[in-house]
C-alpha cells in the first residue's frame, strides 16, 4: 500500500518528518534516553566521573531501610495534604469572590496572580524573614515566639503557607474560567424555586465547576509532590529541623549533587515518580465519584 503513495502524499510525509525532527531528536536525547538511564543507574553505584557499577537492588534496599528517606516521603505527603485541599478550597473561594460583580476586578486579579511571576527563590527569601523566630514580623504581630522554620512541628506548615500563598491566585484564575462557563440560566431557574445561595453552591456551582477543579487538583498535586525550591531556600544544612522538612526532591538533590551518590539519588527519583503516577491514577479512578462532566 505504501508503494502507492502519490508524489504529493510522499512530499507531505517528508515535510512531516522534517518538521517534527528537531523535537523528536531533542526528546530522545534530552528525555527518553535520560529516563532509561536514570532507571538503570538506580540499580548502580556511582564511582565518580560518571562511572557506574551494577549493584542490583542495593540502592533500593538501602533506601527502604533509611529513616531519613521515610521521613522525606512522609514530609512530601504531609505537604500535599496541607497544600492541595486547603490551597484548592481557598482558590475556589477567591474565584467565587472574583466572579461576583465587583469593582477593580482586574486589579484584584493582578494582585492575586503576582506571586506567580516572582522567582520562588526570591519569594522564599522574603518569607524566611517574615517567619524569622526572633525578629520576624509574624511573631511580632501574633505576640508569639514560634520558631517557624527551625521547629520540626511547624517547618512543613511554614513551607505550605508560602506555597499556598504563591499558587492560590493562579488556581483561582483557572477556576474562575470554569465558573464563568456556568450558564446564568441555571441559577435563574433555580432561584425561582426559592433555593438559597448555599444550596445553589452545592447543587449548581460545585458540580458544574468540578471538571475544572479536578484538573486544578491534579496539577497542584503533581507540583506539590515535586516541591523542592521553597524548601531549598528555607532549610539550611544547619537547620535542626532539616530532616523534618526535607521533601523527596530535596533529598534527591542532596544525595545526587551534594553527596554525589547518583545511583542512590536515581533510586529516590524513581520512587518519587512512581508515587506521583500512583497518586494520579488514584485521582483519575476517584474522579468518577465526584466529577460531573455533563448535566
Amino acid at each position: 500500500m505504501n508503494m502507492k503513495l502519490s508524489a504529493a502524499a510522499r512530499r507531505e510525509e517528508n515535510w512531516g518528518w522534517f518538521m517534527v525532527a528537531p523535537t523528536i531528536i531533542g526528546l530522545v536525547v534530552l528525555n527518553i534516553w535520560p529516563f532509561i538511564q536514570t532507571i538503570y543507574t538506580s540499580f548502580c553505584e556511582h564511582q565518580g566521573f560518571g562511572h557506574y557499577r551494577f549493584i542490583g537492588l542495593g540502592n533500593y534496599i538501602e533506601m527502604f531501610g533509611n529513616i531519613e528517606f521515610w521521613k522525606a516521603t512522609w514530609n512530601t505527603i504531609f505537604f500535599c495534604i496541607l497544600t492541595v485541599p486547603v490551597g484548592v478550597a481557598l482558590a475556589l473561594f477567591v474565584a467565587i469572590l472574583l466572579n461576583a460583580k465587583v469593582k477593580f476586578k482586574g486589579g484584584f486579579r493582578t494582585l492575586f496572580f503576582l506571586p506567580l511571576v516572582c522567582a520562588p527563590a526570591a519569594v522564599a527569601m522574603v518569607w524566611r524573614w517574615i517567619f524569622n523566630g526572633e525578629y520576624g514580623i509574624l511573631n511580632q504581630m501574633l505576640g508569639q515566639n514560634i520558631q517557624w522554620i527551625t521547629n520540626p512541628k511547624t517547618a512543613v506548615i511554614a513551607v505550605a503557607i508560602v506555597s499556598i500563598w504563591s499558587s492560590v491566585g493562579y488556581d483561582a484564575v483557572l477556576l474562575l474560567a470554569g465558573l464563568q462557563n456556568i450558564p446564568k440560566t441555571l441559577y435563574e431557574a433555580n432561584s425561582i424555586d426559592g433555593a438559597g445561595k448555599v444550596r445553589q453552591f452545592f447543587t449548581i456551582t460545585l458540580p458544574m465547576v468540578s471538571p475544572t477543579m479536578f484538573s486544578v487538583l491534579i496539577m497542584r498535586l503533581m507540583a506539590s509532590m515535586k516541591i523542592y525550591d521553597l524548601i531549598y531556600m528555607m532549610a539550611d544544612e544547619t537547620n535542626p529541623a532539616l530532616t523534618d522538612m526535607q521533601s523527596l526532591m530535596y533529598l534527591f538533590y542532596r544525595s545526587s549533587f551534594v553527596a554525589g551518590e547518583r545511583g542512590y539519588g536515581s533510586a529516590i527519583v524513581v520512587w518519587t515518580v512512581s508515587l506521583i503516577l500512583l497518586v494520579t491514577l488514584i485521582q483519575f479512578w476517584g474522579q468518577k465519584k465526584w466529577v460531573t462532566y455533563d448535566i
Binding site: L30, I32, F35, M249
Partner: peptide, 25 residues
C-alpha cells in the same frame, strides 16, 4: 506521515514525567 501517533506518544510521555527524572543524565 507514517509514525505520527508513535512520535506524538513520545511527546505525551515526556509531558507526564517530572523533569527531575532527567536531571542526572
Amino acid at each position: 506521515f507514517r509514525g505520527k501517533n508513535i512520535l506524538f506518544g513520545l511527546v505525551l510521555v515526556q509531558m507526564s514525567l517530572p523533569s527531575q527524572i532527567f536531571i542526572i543524565p
